[in-house]
């Protein structure tokens, strides 16, 4: 356990249930049959979009474009730690943001999509800020610790 791990263990618990960041109903294991977070509940059934969580698991936010192959059921890794869980949450919203980004490039005056985009960006920013405070930077300007934690393992290609 390195110094950084100690930092992580000290911060967890204290930081995780703050009122400004509500991840309580985030449960990546159950998305197939349930709608585990508020966005999904609000999402209309006839929306052209999946909710961010289902979209991320499928690699596709747009219902009419999803085609599976060989019946491979979409399922993302179940996060083993609170750190991985928060990172999944970030990746989920980053993915939804990116999907709407590509969509808006071709249709820049679509106000409805732009509104949704801004909402997802807010969620992404909030979660990223929380992650960087507890676990270390996701981009090089996100070092919030007293030490230069950018160099800390693991890097994204290493098994977690």
């Amino acid at each position: 356990m390195n110094e950084y791990m100690n930092y992580y263990n000290r911060s967890i618990g204290k930081q995780y249930n703050t009122e400004e960041f509500t991840m309580n109903d985030w449960n990546p294991g159950i998305y197939m049959n349930q709608t585990p977070y508020s966005d999904a509940k609000k999402e209309k059934k006839n929306s052209i979009l999946y909710n961010p969580y289902e979209g991320f698991a499928k690699g596709n936010l747009f219902k009419d474009l999803y085609k599976s192959y060989k019946g491979v059921k979409p399922k993302i890794l179940e996060p083993k730690t609170e750190k991985m869980e928060l990172l999944s949450y970030i990746s989920t919203y980053a993915f939804a943001v990116h999907e709407l980004n590509l969509y808006l490039d071709n249709d820049p005056f679509n106000q409805k999509m732009l509104e949704k985009y801004k909402k997802y960006v807010e969620e992404l920013k909030k979660a990223t800020k929380e992650y960087e405070k507890i676990y270390g930077p996701l981009t090089v300007t996100g070092v919030k610790q007293k030490d230069w934690t950018w160099v800390n393992d693991p890097w994204p290609w290493e098994n977690n």
């Binding site: 690699g59 747009f62 474009l65 085609k67 192959y69 491979v72 979409p74």
Partner: peptide, 21 residues
């Protein structure tokens, strides 16, 4: 399989966006 399925879907989306443009 899961990451491959994800990457495969991305090709479908990119195809669609290029076609639209």
């Amino acid at each position: 399989l899961q990451p491959l399925a994800f990457l495969r879907q991305r090709e479908i989306i990119h195809y669609q966006r290029f076609k639209e443009l």
